[in-house]
Amino acid sequence: MAQPNQQKFPAVQGGGSLIVAWQIKGKRVLVVGGGEVAAGRILNCLNADALVTVVSPLARLNSEVAYRVAQNEVTHIDRNFEPSDLDGADMVLVAVDDPEASSTIWKLCKEKRIIANIADVPPECDFYFGSVHRDGPLQIMVSTNGKGPRLASTIRKFIAKQLPSNAGSAIETVGQLRVKLRQIAPRPEDGPKRMAWMTKVSDAYSLSQMCELTEEDMANLLRYYPSGKVPSMDVLQSLRGNPDGSKLDVFDGSFGFSVGA
């Protein structure tokens, strides 16, 4: 059997983490602690629609965590951690200034096979939190694999400054277009063609142009799908109020126009 050409494949770079978009909506997350670090963990989980329980004496809650409790955004248990708090938990986040207690909780989580993150103790973490830029549906995470959280924040801010201010809105528009496309091409066998066409759309228009697409634009754009073509933005805009393309020189009268990018 012939050996594959090694130069055609990327080299393995060990020592990294598997960065995924973890869906924890409706999952039970236990947060042990009520300080600044806990507040950040809690917000991250609430943003992901998790069900959060905080275990910490009331007197040790900082103002943000106390606010979450007062607004009933989290469930609060007003005492120190007890092993029974792990019952039913899908994830445990520990953020207390007590290394011995933290390690004890970590060991209990391992016994119960519950994934856990012990703040500021990389060896006792099943996963790390990164520094996240959020703009609507857009999320960009920078991770240093637990080695430099503050540097991760600096890098994240640098990346965010390079992005256009409307990046999130453009993604919302793409999402709407995908939903509409699936409505007109719902069959599983349509999948490859849908994906290929959406790739062309994403490559044809800039982020700012995506943001400018109206409901009428999307309806006109979808008329090109059967032919697999994507019109230029100029052509698409010329169809506003002119859906039959009568003002265009390149219309062949079929379902979809003969011009494409």
Score class of each variant (00 low, 15 high):
163 L>N: 05
81 F>M: 04
107 K>Y: 02
247 K>S: 12
15 G>K: 03
153 S>N: 12
208 S>M: 02
225 Y>F: 15
20 V>M: 13
195 M>C: 01
221 L>G: 06
125 C>P: 08
129 F>V: 03
203 D>A: 14
68 R>P: 00
24 I>K: 02
33 G>S: 07
144 T>V: 08
255 F>G: 01
192 P>Q: 11
210 M>E: 01
249 D>C: 00
118 I>S: 00
177 L>A: 12
227 S>E: 04
9 F>V: 12
10 P>M: 07
219 A>F: 11
120 D>P: 08
34 G>Q: 13
78 D>L: 09
256 G>H: 05
139 Q>K: 05
132 V>R: 00
182 R>P: 00
123 P>Q: 10
182 R>L: 06
24 I>V: 15
50 A>N: 03
27 K>L: 14
253 G>E: 03
144 T>R: 07
76 H>I: 10
147 K>H: 07
192 P>C: 08
42 I>Y: 04
76 H>N: 09
125 C>D: 10
244 D>A: 14
52 V>P: 02
70 A>D: 11
129 F>T: 02
115 I>S: 13
184 I>H: 00
247 K>W: 12
150 R>H: 14
158 F>I: 05
167 A>K: 05
30 L>P: 07
191 G>K: 08
5 N>S: 07
167 A>P: 00
86 L>D: 05
85 D>L: 08
28 R>N: 14
149 P>N: 06
149 P>K: 08
88 G>T: 10
174 V>M: 12
75 T>M: 15
104 T>S: 09
166 N>W: 05
121 V>P: 00
65 V>Q: 01
147 K>C: 04
216 E>N: 12
197 W>Q: 00
96 V>L: 11
81 F>L: 04
233 M>Y: 15
163 L>H: 05
257 F>L: 11
191 G>W: 03
97 D>N: 15
242 N>V: 07
29 V>S: 05
56 S>L: 06
142 V>E: 09
169 S>A: 15
246 S>Y: 10
233 M>I: 14
70 A>W: 05
141 M>A: 15
44 N>G: 08
17 S>W: 08
146 G>Y: 09
78 D>H: 09
148 G>Y: 11
131 S>Q: 07
123 P>M: 06
194 R>M: 06
92 V>Y: 01
68 R>H: 13
133 H>F: 14
130 G>E: 09
204 A>C: 08
168 G>S: 10
233 M>T: 04
218 M>Q: 13
49 D>P: 02
135 D>L: 03
127 F>P: 03
123 P>F: 12
7 Q>K: 12
150 R>F: 06
230 V>Y: 01
210 M>L: 15
193 K>V: 00
84 S>V: 10
243 P>A: 14
247 K>G: 15
125 C>Y: 04
128 Y>F: 15
18 L>N: 05
159 I>G: 05
109 C>H: 01
216 E>D: 14
192 P>T: 08
75 T>Y: 02
20 V>T: 13
4 P>M: 06
145 N>Q: 11
15 G>R: 09
225 Y>G: 01
89 A>Q: 13
23 Q>N: 15
221 L>E: 04
97 D>M: 13
